[in-house]
Design a protein around this nucleic acid. Structure first.
Lengths: 114, 114
DNA sequence: ATACCTGGTATATAAAATATACTAATGGAG
DNA sequence: CTCCATTAGTATATTTTATATACCAGGTAT
């Protein structure tokens, strides 16, 4: 999501919603929190259905937000690892609570398709 | 977000990410948690920038997810109030933690535009 | 030589969000 | 009575976002 606004100027709630909102941000953060430093292609394989373009864009956004870190190793084939920054690590318990909420509430609905 | 899948069949984490992912779902839920039952047009006014079409779609999705409830009163002009279901109310503390995280981490980044 | 790996990018298409105009039923101002 | 405003949306067209597909360099394995 691109907004062309100065993040530090906006309301903290809006900032937080930008970081964890969006279709792929939360799945990416959940994987990073479980799998520690993880490479671009493995991230793509584990995030069922994401395309390379979208993954690249999301990772760039999260780096701009200060949530994840990109470490590039000069090897062949290339190796680039993504991991959580301290700010990102503070999100981990929240992500776990969100997943727990999902487990407790998924059975509350009927079998309709959405 | 439309997925054409049976929600009860999917992974709890994926379910949770569908509920709170998306551009507007979390802002909508935050408003509902703060303002109790709230009408369509006031919701639209308070969610700065959302359009009627998008708000309607988001509300329908959240109803399908079992997170919010729609109560229609047969008055003129029409009155329709939206509120959290018990499943939705269980999300309230998580939303508060997310906002608190935003307040603690927004100053970690420089003033770049994103 | 050929195929395959990596972390991407470029281009074109499909999907989602937006802007705009519009609706029915009523109440109030003039 | 007429005109305008209110409500909760819907219909249509346009713009923005996400996806599918092909492709790149620089190496390794067969």
């Amino acid at each position: 999501m691109k907004y062309e606004v100065d993040l530090t100027q906006m309301c903290p709630a809006t900032f937080a919603f930008h970081v964890i909102g969006g279709k792929w941000n939360l799945p990416i953060l959940a994987l990073l929190s479980e799998e520690g430093p993880i490479r671009y292609n493995e991230l793509k394989r584990r995030l069922n259905g994401i395309t390379g373009t979208t993954l690249t864009n999301c990772l760039k956004d999260l780096i701009d937000y200060g949530i994840i870190h990109r470490e590039q190793y000069h090897e062949v084939p290339p190796r680039v690892e993504y991991s959580l920054t301290p700010s990102g690590q503070e999100l981990v318990p929240l992500i776990e609570e969100i997943v727990a909420w999902g487990a407790n509430n998924i059975h509350a609905l009927g079998g309709q398709k959405v």
